[in-house]
Amino acid sequence: MNLAMSNDERESFLAETRVGVLGVVDSRGERAPLLVPVWYGYQPGGDVVVETARASVKAKLVLAAGRFSICVQDESPPYRYVSVEGPVVDVQDPIDPAARAALAHRYLDSTTAADYLAANKYQLTEDVLFRMRPQRWRTADFAAFAKEFS
């Protein structure tokens, strides 16, 4: 049974508002890759964007590796996930305020996003934005598999 999503399915799934788990090689010695939950942006056919503090371990490791992966999932049955990895193709530092606002509005309602941006306006100036070009995809949609047991 093929569980892989089509190109359109995987891109639509990744474009939905979900928390992603960013993965990056940890070059600080004998450690597993760093995995951290993040807000991200994506439009089908485009790049994955992630904002993080420029002084964070995550930002330093992404800059050193020059690439990262992100995995998003649907935790309700039938389970689905998309994992994508690729090179960093742009680093925005400082971040365009419109890009920062777009991420906030992706995850928060209009009023809460405006309040979040206002309350964190100084802290958010410490952030950078990474743009990753999707190169390798891994996907699974267990809907067909689940139908066999219903």
Rank of each mutant, 00 (worst) to 15 (best):
D26E: 11
M132N: 11
I70L: 15
R100M: 15
G41A: 07
A65T: 10
V82N: 00
L129T: 04
L22M: 12
A118L: 12
G86N: 12
A114Y: 01
V72E: 03
K60S: 11
P94M: 10
L124V: 03
V82G: 01
L124N: 06
T52D: 01
K58Y: 05
E30M: 04
G29Y: 10
E51H: 12
D47P: 02
D141R: 03
A99D: 13
D115W: 02
D96N: 15
T125E: 15
R133K: 15
G23Y: 03
S110K: 10
P87N: 11
P97Y: 14
R28Q: 12
K60Q: 14
V49N: 00
L108F: 11
A104Y: 05
A104S: 13
A65G: 05
A101Y: 07
L22H: 01
E16Q: 14
V84T: 09
N120S: 13
D141P: 02
D74M: 04
Y107L: 04
R67K: 14
L124M: 14
W137N: 09
P78H: 05
E51L: 13
F130E: 00
R54E: 10
P87H: 12
A113L: 08
G20T: 05
V72M: 06
A53V: 13
R31S: 15
S56A: 14
R28T: 15
D127G: 06
R133S: 14
L124P: 01
A53Q: 13
W39F: 13
D109N: 15
P94K: 11
D74Y: 03
E126P: 00
E85M: 10
V84D: 02
S76N: 04
Q43T: 15
G20P: 02
D74H: 09
A114D: 14
P37D: 09
G20Y: 01
L124Q: 10
G66C: 09
V19N: 08
S69F: 02
R133V: 09
Y81V: 05
L124I: 09
A101T: 07
A55V: 13
E30L: 07
G86S: 13
T139C: 07
P37M: 06
Q135I: 04
S76T: 11
R28M: 10
G23T: 12
T112S: 11
R106T: 07
L103T: 11
R138L: 11
P44Y: 06
L124K: 02
A113F: 07
V72Q: 03
V19A: 12
V89E: 09
V72K: 04
P78S: 06
K121M: 09
R131I: 04
V82D: 02
A114C: 03
A119V: 03
V89S: 13
T111D: 15
